[in-house]
Amino acid sequence: MSDKHLTADVDKILEGLDFARLSAARDEKSRAEKKDLLLRLIEVADSLRALKNHCRELAEAGHDEVPYNSVKLICRQLLAVLEGEDVRPMKAAGHPLDLALHEVVAVRPESDAEEDSVLEEVVFGYLWNDQPLRRAKVIVCAADGVEDLGEVS
């Protein structure tokens, strides 16, 4: 086959391909894969955070052999890696409820807190590029007169 024919055939094949769409599909796939990885990393961050809190309690109880500082540093190290990927913790506790970011899992009366402020992040929320990567599951302060609704299924 001559070069001329080959070029024509290749051109014909290329004409049939929508590069913009292919490129968008590739970007979307890569983004979905990255999101999946980040979600797994924040699960590790959850575990480390729980370990850090446990170590702190033990250290405060006088168990000096517990490597609380080391665990704290590893935790910070992981959060820094995540931040490098534009992933940030929502830090919902103490802030007003935002239904776009927070899923309420319970309400609780609390005399010192503002109505509808987040009392506790049961599952920590994270933003990725300022969009929710994982919504926070939160307990909020009940309005006056609203009793503790307890747990939800």
Partner: peptide, 11 residues
């Protein structure tokens, strides 16, 4: 979604 997020607050 936001209605879902409000469910436990006001079932």
């Amino acid at each position: 979604r936001q209605a879902w997020n409000n469910a436990a607050r006001d079932p």
